[in-house]
Amino acid sequence: MSATETELRELSYLGAVNEALHQIMAEDPDVFCAGEDVGASGGVFGSFGGLQKKYGELRAVDTPISEQAIVGLGIGAAVAGLRPVVDLMFMDFIMVAMDQIANQAAKLKYMFGGKTSLPLTITTNAGAGLSAAAQHSQSLESMLAHVPGLKVVMPSNPYDAKGLLVASIRDDNPVIYAKTKTLFGTKGPCPEDLFEVPLGVANITRPGTDATIVTYGRMAGESLKAASILSSEGVDVEVIDLRTLQPMDSETIIASVKRTNRCVVVHEAVRFAGMGAEIAAQIQEEAFDYLDAPIGRVAAPFSPVPFSPVLEGAYVPDAKRIAEGVRAAVQRG
């Protein structure tokens, strides 16, 4: 297949994830997947489809409903030299396994004086929008990004979904790779070869001059929609898709804000102590003199995710609210 054909091929977000897993398992015999319903059924969302058929029960493992032991299995196997991918079906369930993630996986290398690396990938599924209510809809990335030793990845499109997963699995550190449930069916161009999108490198998905939106995950797409609304009003917005929250590409953020002088951070997670707080703090530390307006935040309000579609609709930020946030920043001073 020629390079252009490769470029043009469209794949769904979930299809990209599945393809990455198939290809990396073919390449590296140390990679295995484990989690609830990961094996025979191919995962409740289908990410692991076909892996057990192709690679057997030892490389696509159906585990008991035991989140702590699932993560622990990954940690132990990684210390013993394998390269595990363990799955926690919903990001909310990360809380069930938080000791293994935050006290164990994140810290072993440091506590042991560097004696081990921990090539572990924890895949999970974040976000609201499915009326799945308060225990199946959370975006908990800032809690994870707060823990030294962890990396946190949140892809927003099929291309990144594949490339970031490959980079996550090849990384020698514990990485939380959080997909967004509402993006599963989204289609986009994605190369067929095995490739990496490096961790810690943001993507300027739309260059602009009047204001910078810093975002990731589902809100990356909503922000582009907001940018096109604003463009019809004569406001030229730059959109940065962070792709990785830890490590964070602060350089790209700061450079952009120094050019546009205005910034709004957008995420689906609740506003209080969300990633926006960290990003705004970094900007004022590094680019205070360049700012023409306070840094805005568009995020979910400080409540659990409601069940009713009407409430949930009001809860999750969308292009309209993002555009309002940018207007506030642009109209100022």
Partner: peptide, 9 residues
């Protein structure tokens, strides 16, 4: 639950 919880709550 006033529509806050749904089936699972």
């Amino acid at each position: 639950c006033n529509g806050k919880g749904g089936s699972m709550h």
